[in-house]
Amino acid sequence: MNDRAKGGTGDAPPAGTRRAGAPRGASRPAAQGLFRRLFVINGLVFATGTLVLALSPATVSAPVVWAEVPVLLVGLAVMLGANALLLRRSLAPLDALTTLMQRVDLLRTGDRLSDSGNSDLTHLIATFNAMLDRLEAERSASSAHALAAQEGERQRIARELHDEIGQSLTVVLLGLKRVVDRAPADLKEDLHGVQETVRASLDEVRQVARRLRPGVLEDLGLHSALSALTTDVSRMSGVPVTRHLQPDHPALGPDVELVLYRIAQESLTNIARHARATRAELSLAVEDGRLVLRITDDGRGGVVQEGAGIRGMRERALLIGARLTVDSPPGQGTRVSLVIPPDRRTAP
């Protein structure tokens, strides 16, 4: 993990200060340019209207007679219509900017406003896009720090479960075995029941420790870890999981492998708990130069609101510069796709 990730996003600057890289008075050129454009548009409309009135044969009496009122109303309507049309074209980028501001989500990167060619608003659009770049970078650094702390805590808990609770249960199991061998016949059945309960608890502790810390990922690699994961999910949930793992994909960095494993783990866990599926499929392959992980099921689908699990997957995808999509039409199952660009396979 790099120093930036370890440091998080840092303290927010005091009110009234500007960030490094933002020029002093950066908003003034856009505001002044927009003011000039609107002033010129209104000036041209009024000047044209005045010129037409001056050169036309129409006259205005004092006081105004009723026959002249339609001419004045038509002239006013034409001026207002021309003014509205020109202003609408000039302010159209602001509508696009407002729409983008309403839908922007830092967990869905790459949503930017394109320059429409309006030179007066180019600086405003560029400043807004730069703000999104900065916020996404800070969110990525903050997520990296939080996820690193989370993984460290997972490993600590897994070690304690394995080394302390697991060892204690093993000692209890061995002690019960000796007691059962020497116990009277009328107590052996009860002691056997206690022995099986302790053995089941030991197995559960080991399973929890494996889920918290995928040791097989560190020891045997991503393919073996995903194979073990699908086997465990199939056995525990009763949902058969078919896997298709391309054997010759490019080498991956440890952070990328961990993100792939955690997203597959969360997706399969959601299928086991909520999907009511009869089958599921996991695939990992290279498509058009990009590494793609897909997890699909034939369950009820209809994911309307994303919970903590899906948002956690999006944060992990953001950490390695990947794109996560969740397609879940009602009654047609759920399809989770993680696409990793070629330049991010060795993520920081």
Rank of each mutant, 00 (worst) to 15 (best):
233 V>W: 05
333 G>E: 01
189 E>W: 00
128 F>M: 12
204 E>D: 10
74 V>E: 13
118 N>P: 05
309 G>F: 04
242 T>A: 12
322 A>V: 06
127 T>L: 09
72 L>T: 05
222 L>K: 00
284 L>T: 01
6 K>C: 05
28 R>N: 14
200 A>S: 12
218 E>Y: 07
85 L>H: 06
127 T>G: 08
162 H>C: 01
321 G>F: 04
307 G>P: 02
296 T>D: 15
3 D>Q: 15
275 A>L: 04
314 R>M: 08
138 E>P: 02
252 L>H: 04
82 A>E: 03
1 M>L: 06
329 P>M: 03
265 Q>G: 06
200 A>I: 05
69 V>W: 15
179 V>A: 11
241 V>K: 00
249 H>L: 09
78 V>I: 15
222 L>R: 00
166 G>I: 11
324 L>Y: 10
112 R>W: 08
248 D>L: 03
114 S>V: 14
94 L>M: 14
294 R>M: 08
303 V>R: 09
87 L>T: 15
210 R>P: 01
169 L>R: 07
314 R>D: 00
337 S>A: 11
29 P>Q: 06
8 G>V: 05
220 L>T: 01
257 E>A: 07
338 L>M: 07
347 A>V: 05
104 V>R: 09
304 V>S: 07
139 R>Y: 12
72 L>R: 06
305 Q>M: 05
306 E>M: 04
106 L>R: 09
162 H>D: 14
22 A>M: 09
64 V>E: 10
71 V>A: 14
220 L>C: 02
187 L>C: 07
301 G>W: 10
8 G>R: 05
197 T>I: 04
94 L>T: 10
138 E>T: 07
10 G>I: 07
330 P>K: 06
44 L>W: 13
145 H>W: 00
68 E>R: 08
9 T>M: 05
15 A>P: 13
39 F>A: 13
129 N>G: 12
88 R>W: 09
237 S>D: 02
127 T>Y: 05
115 D>Q: 10
228 A>S: 08
304 V>I: 07
266 E>H: 11
102 Q>L: 12
28 R>V: 14
307 G>Q: 03
225 A>N: 03
315 E>L: 03
326 V>H: 01
12 A>L: 14
210 R>A: 13
272 A>G: 07
179 V>K: 06
261 Y>S: 04
65 V>S: 11
178 R>S: 14
235 R>S: 08
166 G>A: 09
329 P>I: 04
310 I>V: 13
292 V>D: 07
143 S>V: 13
332 Q>F: 07
97 L>P: 09
124 L>Q: 02
25 G>V: 09
40 V>F: 11
98 T>A: 15
158 A>R: 05
297 D>M: 08
144 A>G: 12
146 A>V: 07
132 L>Q: 14
272 A>V: 01
59 T>P: 08
13 P>M: 11
4 R>Q: 14
153 E>A: 14
282 L>C: 10
60 V>N: 00
336 V>I: 13
347 A>R: 02
72 L>G: 11
296 T>F: 01
276 R>A: 06
216 V>S: 03
255 D>M: 05
96 A>K: 13
9 T>W: 01
190 D>N: 11
25 G>W: 13
272 A>Q: 01
258 L>V: 00
31 A>T: 04
112 R>E: 14
340 I>F: 01
317 A>K: 02
319 L>P: 01
245 L>N: 00
50 T>Q: 11
326 V>C: 04
